[in-house]
Amino acid sequence: MTGALAAVTAAAPPWAAWGGAFGHPFFQHALLAGTAIAAAAGLTGYFLVLRAQVFVGDALSHVAFTGALAALAFGADLRIGLYAAAVAVALLLGGMGTRGRADDVAIGSVFSWILGLGVFFLTLYTTSRSAGNGSAGVSVLFGSIFGLSSAQALTAALVGLGICATLAAVARPLLFASLDEAVAAARGVPVRLLGFGFLALAGVCAAEATQAVGSLLILGLLAAPAGAAHRLTGRPLPALALSGALAVAEMWTGLAVSYAVPRMPPSFSILAAATAVYAATYLPTLRRRPAV
């Protein structure tokens, strides 16, 4: 895994160029927002994988797209649409699935419909506000982390930090409720409330991550580091921390690569790093296989 990381960073230019990167406000903002978003996505993703709710992340990414474009179509702030839509749908999914666990059929039927709605709002926006930003759809889909203002970066950092702090506070009861619902409930853990609360938090996380990597790529940031952490260790709290750390390392790698190679969009670099790490966790299995 470290090998893969090294291989990716090796593509970056000599260290001399680095002083320059930190001097650019756009890079500082990207680093600040990116770190917080990655940590939040890594921790949220760990629980999504554990609870077999990765598809919630997928559904939320579609919803985030639709919410953002609906807000634009009605002339509101894009972020209001992002948050409102992602959190509302997360809670809806929780309500549809039994006992606060969204199930696959519920998610599947909701999210294809919502993506269609997003396309409708995109059409509405681009046709009614011809003077407006024509690339809004692309930006929401693929992210614009190098285009964040300092206020946006600060908001992202605070939201990311809030998600991390909340997840750390509920980590053990949420773990208990995810693995052993009946016993956790018997011991007084508010299983239902935690299930809803966690999905709402995943909604906030997806909305925030949309601004960094775009709605289409959220799933990668939520699933890849968490999947790798689940494969690397079975111990729950270390795996949770590892998932957050991997996400942050992959974010940094992606940002560095995209700074060094401007033709590579940051969303692509970040997810390339995430996918490389996840794929690398399979290497030991491959090497072992011929012996079996």
């Binding site: 053990r172 009861p173 773990l175 208990f176 007084g188 853990v189 494969r231 079975g234």
Partner: peptide, 20 residues
């Protein structure tokens, strides 16, 4: 992949808030 020990541990402090 969680170990048996981790499952037993849930019974010990799985209902506690915050981190140890």
């Amino acid at each position: 992949r969680m170990r048996g020990l981790d499952i037993v541990r849930l019974g010990w402090d799985g209902d506690r808030w915050g981190l140890p």
